[in-house]
Amino acid sequence: MRIRKLCQVAAVSTVLLIGGGTVAGAAPATDARSEITAADIADPSAVITDSPEELAAARTASQAIAWYADRTGSTAYEGYCERAARLSWNRTTHHASAKEHWTSSDGARHTTGTPPKGSFVFWAISANYHVGIADGNGGVWATNVNHRIGHARQSYFGSYQGWKAGNSN
């Protein structure tokens, strides 16, 4: 099965040649599938899916961050950092803990560089680890920032492990 992406093609004016003359009309909006290009692969925010339902459910890095920002100060996810990270991206993949997520085959592990916007960031601060979402500028959104959902520098938590690309898988 080839990987394809679903694109919305906007309605555009078309020119039809009829009997040597031209008539202007509007083509209806359609779903068009196209092969993945090098540009799509280079764009980490590209959403790749075969299903309109998956596309509708998929989130962007900005939406994942907004999920946290909308809950700033909440204690509802204290002790549930992996759940918060999963919900922020509306993920279908579930992990029992941040450590399970970090050690899983669910995405490549990176231990250097600034984590890109929306990526999952991991720390070994407990037996189950801790996870948050990168802002792309060296900061993170996470639970347990002063015992609440909040924004902090990546160094706020000790024992940095690394990051994995954020996604709605």
Score class of each variant (00 low, 15 high):
Ala84Ile: 08
Asn137Asp: 14
Pro44Tyr: 15
Pro44Asn: 14
Ile149Asp: 00
Val15Trp: 10
Leu87Gly: 04
Gln63Val: 02
His130Leu: 03
Thr111Met: 07
Arg153Glu: 09
Ala165Tyr: 15
His147Val: 03
Trp123Cys: 06
Thr60Glu: 15
Tyr80Glu: 14
Gly79Trp: 09
Gly118Ala: 00
His94Ser: 13
Val23Arg: 14
Gly132Val: 11
Thr92Val: 13
Tyr77Gly: 01
Thr92Leu: 03
Tyr80Met: 13
Arg86Trp: 04
Ile48Cys: 05
Val131Arg: 11
Ala11Cys: 07
Thr49Pro: 02
Thr143Phe: 02
Asn128Leu: 04
Ala42His: 07
Lys99Val: 00
Leu17Phe: 08
Ala26Asp: 14
Gln63Ala: 07
Thr30Pro: 00
Ser88Met: 08
Ser62Arg: 01
Phe122Leu: 04
Arg59Glu: 04
Trp141Asn: 04
Cys7Gly: 02
Ala66Val: 05
Ser13Phe: 09
Ala24His: 12
Cys7Asn: 06
Ala26Leu: 15
Arg109Glu: 07
Thr93Arg: 12
Val140Asp: 11
Arg109Met: 04
Ser155Tyr: 04
Ala11Gln: 15
Ala38Arg: 08
Ala10Ser: 13
Ala24Asp: 14
Tyr156Phe: 15
Gly166Thr: 06
Asn167Ser: 09
Ala152Val: 12
Val47Leu: 15
Ser159Asn: 15
Gly118Gln: 00
Ala58Cys: 10
Ala76Pro: 00
Trp102Ser: 06
Ser155Gly: 07
Ala142Asn: 14
Thr114Phe: 01
Arg2Lys: 12
Ala58Asp: 14
Val9Lys: 07
Gly25Met: 09
Trp67Asn: 04
Cys7Lys: 11
Ser126Pro: 03
Ile133Phe: 03
Trp141Ile: 06
Ala85Val: 10
Ala127Arg: 08
Ser51His: 03
